[in-house]
Design a protein around this nucleic acid. Sequence first.
DNA 1: AAAACAATGCAATGGAATTGCATTAGTTGG
DNA 2: CCAACTAATGCAATTCCATTGCATTGTTTT
Lengths: 138, 138
Amino acid sequence: MKPITEQKLANKNVTPTAMRILVMNMLLEQNAAISLSDIEKSLAPADRITIYRTIKTFEEKGLVHVIEDGTGAPKYALCLEECDVNEHHDLHVHFNCISCKETFCLPNCKIPDVSLPVNFSSTEMNLIVKGICDKCAN
Amino acid sequence: MKPITEQKLANKNVTPTAMRILVMNMLLEQNAAISLSDIEKSLAPADRITIYRTIKTFEEKGLVHVIEDGTGAPKYALCLEECDVNEHHDLHVHFNCISCKETFCLPNCKIPDVSLPVNFSSTEMNLIVKGICDKCAN
DNA sequence: AAAACAATGCAATGGAATTGCATTAGTTGG
DNA sequence: CCAACTAATGCAATTCCATTGCATTGTTTT
């Protein structure tokens, strides 16, 4: 087993159970954000509800962040280390390829400043770009 | 009845039935984006499926656009006139207030340019800002 | 008026999120 | 080491919403 897996769980005070290690390992292997049903299929015949609660736990503990990419199904991806329960720092752009349907985090792509109207204040921003990714570009 | 209602429908070749006029009127009265269940409640006891299909039609014809604001339920708001079936021009920012839970379009707030990685191209962008709106700011 | 097409309403399906509860595992105090 | 407690799991069941099928109604065209 990868030591990094247990390390990540321990860092956020998540007790490393078998299921959590499986899910975390799977997340570590991805370069795209994945949906709950992706995890279910990959980890079959593991219990769906347990996977659901595992992801919820990860989310609450700041291990993963949710990406609403407009496809209906929420996608999940590992957070950066700096994230914690109260504040997510995933102010990077998420890219949804309309060809391969995959959703990627673009960590090097920061969301530019937006000038909100007077008396509006922001706590969080999510920018989803749809288009064609590099692999699908011909 | 407001002449603008039928005008808007006619502009996009949508035949103005009773239900469509009701829904369109409701959309015209909003200053926030609304969900399907909002419409259902407001127009009760009108048939839910008909409302659903009405919104779908509006969406296809470029009358409304969908906003995935991360609350799970898609919200709908009227498009600008320039929108059509194939291309939506709603590249403005959507703001979801975490206090009053309302979602607004900020038409004067354009999405800044984002420099994507090499070989990525974009066809659409959605920026959701979460925070406190002017009404909820104290 | 008849035919053709569009819109509607009801029923039914399907998928996914969520909760309740009993069982199992893992931890702590005696 | 055992008992008590807490956390995690697995199964069943529920709920909610999107979506589709189909028969009926309304509208337009010829």
